[in-house]
Design a binder for these strands. Structure first.
Lengths: 139, 139
DNA sequence: ATATATGCAAAGCTTTTGCTGAAGA
DNA sequence: TCTTCAGCAAAAGCTTTGCATATAT
């Protein structure tokens, strides 16, 4: 959180309660929430918050590099405040997104040019069925 | 294309000129088009085509496993008729998506359970800046 | 005091849906 | 003939935008 305050100031951006709340919620969340999910959650402690502000705050946090879009196939975008190098296990039944760490995978990802393309970041999305949805599938 | 006809029939689905045109266009395309891009392209030879039909055709083709959504961070979905195992280089400046093959990467991708999660398919998205956007950046 | 951000409502897109007439098997 | 599908238009999301007010610095 201190990091956020510093980065905002450095970028000439205001540190507002709304941005703090959005960022804190994202930091504490494990569920890679969508803007709508964040809206519902942050509103509990800040009822005047508007959905447009969530979108603008996410855009600001992303500009600062504090937050990333999670590259999931779903109708809405999902966000993650974990900026460590990590990947995602995406359940096609319930939509849950779990983190997945793999040093070997990270090591294989190209760090230099591929046919003129300069890689910046890599995400591996593994789709499948999570443990609880499989249990639900067994009758 | 023959494969498509067979699979449609097996699934009790009609083989319509619209579906054929959408599938052929996707097969011949290198640009991982969005529904809108397909719409513009297929309409050139089939002016009566509607956008809703594109969506329905893509859904049908996906159900048959002939087409996949490309998991790109962008405002609209992108589609791919290349069902070989491959990954994507996504340019964050122009939105272009190029294919990327890597046997080593494929080999590291989990094929068995990870903490109860059963993997089904894997996509590696490498974001960065493509060759032509870098040139455009140099003044 | 000044620049920046919020909240609201409206607009803009993308995607889905219901229905009727048309076409495939 | 009977089922499935295309086209249309309307609806339903999701996301962005403009503007007036409020807030951060």
């Amino acid at each position: 959180m201190d990091d956020m305050v510093r980065r905002c100031r450095d970028a000439g951006m205001n540190v507002t309660p709304q941005r703090l709340a959005v960022y804190r919620t994202l930091l504490e969340s494990e569920e890679h929430p969508s803007p709508e999910m964040l809206y519902r959650q942050v509103r509990e402690s800040m009822p005047s918050l508007s959905l447009a502000t969530i979108y603008k705050a996410l855009e600001a946090l992303e500009r600062l590099g504090l937050v990333h879009e999670v590259n999931v196939i779903s109708d809405t975008k999902r966000y993650d405040a974990n900026t460590d190098n990590h990947h995602h296990l995406v359940c096609t039944m319930c939509g849950n997104v779990a983190d997945y760490y793999s040093d070997e995978l990270d090591a294989l990802v190209p760090r230099r040019r591929v046919r003129g393309f300069v890689p910046r970041s890599v995400t591996v999305n593994i789709t499948g069925v999570c443990a609880s949805c499989q249990q639900a599938g067994d009758h």
